[in-house]
Amino acid sequence: MRPAKIPTEELMTSGHLACQGCGATQAMRFALKALGPKTALVIPACCWSVIDGPFPHSSLKVPIFHTAFEAAASTASGLKAGLEMRGDTETVVMAWAGDGGTFDIGIQALSGAAERNEDMIYCCYDNEAYMNTGIQRSSATPAGAWTTTTPIKHYKKRPKKKIIDIMAAHSIPYIATASVAYPLDLIEKFKKAREIKGTRFIHVFAPCPTGWKLAPELSVSMARQAVTSKIFPLMEVTDNGRRWSVWKDFEPTPLQDYIKAQGRFRHLTDEEIEGIGRETERNWQELLMKERISLELPGLESE
């Protein structure tokens, strides 16, 4: 990871309505620092529909168009087309959606926009459940987690949907994961995305202390451990979904530290945690294989 400077300009103000320790809020602040003021946001139903602040206020210094839950990518497609036809080709349009609006209800519009390679940044800030409605499971909720719709007796058994694989299958020019615990990396990725034409998908890991049953001051620490325990790898997929590169330059930390720090996993036995650990390691190895294979593929543009 190369160091980047954090721009001093603040496009997010105080007065927003987020919970303490909200990862989604940190993600927005850093993303806008990277993108700058010539950015227009499309926000579907998600925590950020509320965080922004009530009518007639807004906590952001960029325009926001609020849209329906499943409609972030399609609304952003139209917004970009409208701006261009008005002669504004500079503004970056960013769809900013939660995991529910991306992995679940918004995936059709997202897939459509990505297949058309619409000129937008699509950012999914992932807090791993429907937090705004009170912690219900989404297809981004990890296996083992408690939510209000996956109670302890029936905690979530199915693994988190592999959204990066899905997006890579759309052959779009830029895909990245980022984390609020690594702001320099996050900013660098948004800056990089800003310069690319076409659909850029950034998946930001954004802890939710309220939904994860976590002390707010541990939010950033959890985001960091998600990376170092390999459950949320930092990576980029470039060359239209073919070139995978995974960040490996970190001191690994035990997955059980990450799991045991969070109330949402409190019910898990050591054996169950070991099972999650095995799955995590397999996913990690699979990812490294994808990286190796992508390096061996002939005819790729060099980075």
Binding site: A73, S77, G78, K80, A81, D88, E115
Partner: peptide, 25 residues
């Protein structure tokens, strides 16, 4: 002289119109 967005559903057709109209087109 128009952009034609060939969407994947009518829901997206209407939301793309909403986005474009909100941009002033």
């Amino acid at each position: 002289d128009a952009k034609f967005i060939m969407v994947e559903s009518e829901h997206s057709a209407m939301t793309a119109c909403v986005g474009a109209s909100a941009a002033g087109a």
